[in-house]
Design a protein around this nucleic acid. Structure first.
Lengths: 119, 119
DNA sequence: TGAAATAAGTTGTATATACAACTTTATGCT
DNA sequence: AGCATAAAGTTGTATATACAACTTATTTCA
């Protein structure tokens, strides 16, 4: 559980300059790939309770990163796509830093999965 | 990051009947091993910001699981040791469930993110 | 087609966390 | 010893989350 907090702190550090949280970035990543998802589907994809998702969507809408205009479907805005592009390098840095930590704690199952995906 | 939430939810589910959070359990685990730690040391061991630790200690003290009597050192109470013994089986269940999820769903969730990065 | 039932979306509330500011305690130095 | 400085501990504040209750939208079926 400590690892959860450590990794969360790492991501927070890298994402703070963009005024966005890791949950919100996850949402943008998904929306960048798929359009016309409703909140139910989105909440399953990003594994956020529906009320938490709903509030994150409000924040993202206020920041003009997503649009609720075509209810009930949620779509990313051009602004949102632009942010995803700009933020990805920082996100990668957070990943690298997290992976280093995970490797140090070799007993953690997470590491196995991360390595698998890295191929 | 989704994995963080999934795992946190699993632990919350198993620990809820005991009225304790995963952070608080981490603290008890450490205190069961080592005595006479001050808050500074403890916060490093459990990787909790000092104010978060401080508030968790207040909660644990209210529940009579730890004692602040020999300031500045924190010690677990007999009550606390007893809880650790009773809670450990449930904690293990949470670990098993977490590991299963990591193997089944974690990979898929991470692939979604990795695909977004490739673009 | 329209009412009942179900699902999706939103809001209310409590809790946990981090950062920053503040207070208290400990340390160092003359 | 006593003052200044640093460290540890506490409190103030904002944010994110989950669960529960509530509202709105959709589906089902007679």
């Amino acid at each position: 559980m400590q690892l959860n907090r450590i990794i969360a702190n790492i991501f927070r550090k890298y994402l703070k300059p963009f005024g966005i949280t890791d949950s919100q970035l996850s949402i943008l990543f998904v929306l960048a790939k798929k359009s016309d998802l409703n909140q139910k589907k989105l909440s399953e994809l990003v594994v956020l309770e529906k009320s938490s998702l709903n509030r994150n969507l409000s924040r993202l809408e206020n920041a003009n990163l997503i649009s609720k205009n075509d209810f009930p479907y949620i779509n990313i805005t051009d602004n949102g796509r632009d942010l995803v592009l700009r933020i990805t390098p920082e996100w990668k840095k957070a990943m690298v830093e997290s992976e280093k930590l995970l490797q140090n704690d070799g007993k953690i199952a997470l590491e196995v999965i991360m390595n698998n995906i890295k191929q």
